[in-house]
């Protein structure tokens, strides 16, 4: 196993822990976006460019956007 693979695997494990440990959904959405980028780099290092392409666009753009829109809807109702 190369050093790059070890480093990115440890980062992914840490990123997943950070996503769960962040309790505020707004910050968690940002953390989930970052986790998506880390996953995409891991997939790239594991020689899977198709999966990395999907994960970049979905995990860093589409998913946090939907979370943020739902949060905005819910926050507005709490006023």
């Amino acid at each position: 196993m190369t050093v790059l693979q070890v480093v990115i695997l440890v980062l992914v494990a840490g990123g997943g822990t950070a996503v769960v440990a962040t309790r505020d959904p707004l910050r968690q959405a940002m953390m989930a976006s970052f986790f998506g980028i880390l996953l995409a780099i891991l997939f790239f290092v594991l020689q899977a460019p198709d999966v990395a392409l999907s994960e970049i666009v979905v995990g860093a753009v589409a998913l946090p956007l939907m979370i943020l829109l739902s949060l905005a809807k819910v926050r507005g109702g709490q006023r």
Partner: peptide
């Protein structure tokens, strides 16, 4: 491009479709 060249280089319908939705976004 990604959708059309899916059978030649990494890509395909799933990836290209999501990128197209990002363009509209």
């Amino acid at each position: 491009y990604v959708v059309a060249h899916g059978h030649l280089t990494p890509g395909g319908g799933f990836q290209g479709g999501v990128i197209l939705a990002t363009g509209v976004l």
